[in-house]
Design a binder for these strands. Sequence first.
DNA 1: GGATAATTTGACCGATTGGTAAACATTACA
DNA 2: TGTAATGTTTACCAATCGGTCAAATTATCC
Lengths: 214, 214
Amino acid sequence: MAIPRAARTQRRTRIQEEKEEIILEAALDVFSVSGFRGSTIDQIAEVAGMSKPNLLYYFRTKEAMHRALIDRVLFTWLEPLRAFDSNGDPESEIRSYIRRKLEMARDFPRESRLFANEMLQGAPHVEDELRGPLKSLVDEKAQVIRAWAQAGKIAKCDPYHLIFSIWSTTQHYADFDVQVRAVLGDEHSGEGRFEDAARYLEQLFVDGLRIRQG
Amino acid sequence: MAIPRAARTQRRTRIQEEKEEIILEAALDVFSVSGFRGSTIDQIAEVAGMSKPNLLYYFRTKEAMHRALIDRVLFTWLEPLRAFDSNGDPESEIRSYIRRKLEMARDFPRESRLFANEMLQGAPHVEDELRGPLKSLVDEKAQVIRAWAQAGKIAKCDPYHLIFSIWSTTQHYADFDVQVRAVLGDEHSGEGRFEDAARYLEQLFVDGLRIRQG
DNA sequence: GGATAATTTGACCGATTGGTAAACATTACA
DNA sequence: TGTAATGTTTACCAATCGGTCAAATTATCC
């Protein structure tokens, strides 16, 4: 008789590892587009190429699948901020943080959209993680930025809103990809748009628009 | 016998105006959180305080409701960009554009989320509007910005990515509101956060972070 | 006030939803 | 190679989905 997944205590078999990977991959495809409520187990099963009861053998509910996915994404999603080095040079740290976040938007757009979907719905499944680990990490890095500002290395500015603005500008290229492509037109919506975005954003954050009064 | 709404040609009655307004208001509540697929007519009917068949008397399908809502939101959503004055002073135009967009994120977060939801799903219902009217408007304003750059009034920069960055940074406070509140903590997530954001963003766009090499 | 048009609702439909039961197939391991 | 554990599928369930219909109710206008 099959043992329900949650009750298993022994280490996972090869098949379990493989299949769970396939399922989460398919779930990412579906959840990232339609959100939790808008996605169905049948859709995920079809993308994964297996039967619905087979999915439910590995994840007992739709919510468990979403949970596993969100947990994994949430961890890797904060990798660039964790890599933000307090001892580094302010300019190069901010530049490379922007670059890394932009690369993630380019290489992992589904992960970005999954997260965005969850935020739009009011983060019903991850609010604890936001108030806990996320807030702690941001608090820590905000202190670093504040110290830089007080040392005169960068302009005085609210470090939290600085982080928000880096998040939003970079993730925009994943979450609003359709809009970006539509506005840029077919000519400029190739992969080169990430180069252009990187160049623009680095300039924006380092120099601003250097507006001169007419 | 009742005449289906779409076939009516005479002017709308008072009741029609009122009820359609109530329905769209309720639909905005629901669609903005759960997206099109994740929302149900029953949910909207409950929020609107009327029976499901009554909703369907005014809007023949769920899609028609969403359509009417998106059309209206799309128009008002571009109001600030339309108000962007080519003959104005670059600094004050950009400043007030940021301010206006931020006010919209504060005062109309549901509209922002409705739009974000549609983008995340690949804009299946509005891609034409993006490639048509939206692109035209952005093209026009991008030309203005480009002219300012060439006249040396602002730094040379990609005007499209400039517009994207204003969109993303401002709308972030509506779309990712839960995250912003979670990170800022209960103390700083009152309405004052929009003042802080406005101050930070205006500084960012005008001066950048004015990073000085150590 | 009565006729007519507009509005509202309860009952219902077939399709789809998340999830289950149990039979069947495959794998791991002695 | 046998057998017990693991993995897979078909058939199915109750609940919910978008939407229809006809009857009942209300507003409008003469």
